[in-house]
């Protein structure tokens, strides 16, 4: 399917990200080699200018990466039209063993590039640029990751052929009969209880952390978000999605992205992913607070991230629960 126009769009996105990141990597090498904050010669001034270039390049890279994630899911949905058995992105992603890993890598990419930008924003808030080495080593480590992303995506697109027979989401996520690769047998009621209990716990922790600072609570909050991200995905697949489709046996995390369901999936994932990012990252930047000039910016970020993650958590819970509650309240079930 390399010649399909959606594949071309993905390849163009990858080329753009690769181009931006390779340029950023080149300037990372220069900065790592020649950076000397004590000096004020021409080279140091040039390097300080280059920091702006790298950050702009990574910002663009992150933007394109987010678009490429959306394009990848939509492309898989489009490929489903030409693969026997596939009804939505699920079938197309499972038609080749590299489909799901590519999606997960792209998702991880959004978190990793986002974290680089966070480090950069903290770094430029201190006049000493205390994170220069850390963030540029991190940037160089992102390059092999990017190569893996592009390699997997290309081999997935090249391996996808219209004569492969695959399964549709109704079979893959079916909990009543046996045998799908992503089979989730989780019963609905415990999943819902766990989901709402975790939401309450996270909200409580966030409010507590906004008033008092305890490192153990902060670590618990971050770990809680890691757990909640997985749990939210399970809850979307096993419970919430079928209320969005109004069909008890239709459970799919991709069909909610379709226009006939008012693109509600984009809202759900568009709140869940940033919420998780802001939930996890405060603890990750905590070790840097003793570096010169960073204590203030990190404290500001911690408060802002807590508020943002709490707000997005509530929005996500409301969005996910709405179809479920509407069904319950309008008398669908006693």
């Amino acid at each position: 399917m390399l010649l399909d126009v959606w594949s071309l769009a993905l390849i163009v996105c990858s080329t753009v990200v690769a181009f931006l990141m390779v340029f950023a990597g080149r300037s990372a090498l220069r900065v790592l080699r020649f950076w000397n904050p004590a000096s004020d010669d021409n080279r140091q001034i040039r390097l300080e200018n280059e920091i702006w270039l790298t950050s702009t390049l990574v910002e663009y890279g992150l933007g394109v990466q987010i678009i490429s994630l959306v394009v990848f899911v939509l492309a898989a949905d489009h490929f489903a039209g030409s693969i026997p058995g596939a009804m939505c992105a699920t079938g197309a992603l499972l038609a080749d063993p590299r489909g799901m890993p590519t999606l997960l890598i792209k998702l991880a990419g959004v978190f990793l590039y986002g974290f680089w930008l966070l480090l950069h924003q903290l770094d430029i808030r201190s006049e000493h640029y205390p994170l220069v080495r850390v963030k540029y080593i991190y940037l160089l480590l992102l390059l092999p990751f990017l190569a893996l992303d592009i390699g997997l995506q290309m081999s997935y697109l090249a391996g996808l052929r219209p004569d492969i027979i695959t399964s549709c989401c109704a079979v893959v996520f079916d909990s009543s009969s046996g045998g799908g690769p992503l089979l989730l047998r989780a019963p609905q009621v415990p999943v819902l209880q766990l989901f709402y209990a975790t939401v309450l716990l996270l909200a409580g922790l966030a409010v507590f952390l906004l008033r008092r600072r305890r490192i153990t609570a902060a670590i618990a909050y971050s770990l809680g978000w890691c757990w909640f991200f997985g749990l939210a995905m399970v809850a979307i697949i096993t419970v919430f999605s079928s209320y969005i489709y109004n069909m008890p046996f239709h459970k799919c995390p991709f069909c909610i992205l379709k226009p006939q369901y008012h693109f509600i999936g984009f809202l759900l994932y568009g709140t869940l992913i940033p919420a998780t990012f802001f939930g996890i990252t405060p603890v990750l930047v905590e070790p840097f607070r003793h570096r010169p000039g960073l204590a203030g910016p990190i404290a500001i970020y911690r408060t802002a991230a807590l508020k943002i993650s709490l707000f997005l958590l509530l929005v996500f819970t409301a969005l996910a629960s709405f179809p479920y509650l509407r069904y319950m309240l309008t008398g669908g079930e006693s």
Partner: peptide
């Protein structure tokens, strides 16, 4: 629209 955007504006 997204497809055309990716093929033209992003590069």
């Amino acid at each position: 629209v997204l497809l055309i955007f990716c093929l033209s504006v992003l590069p």
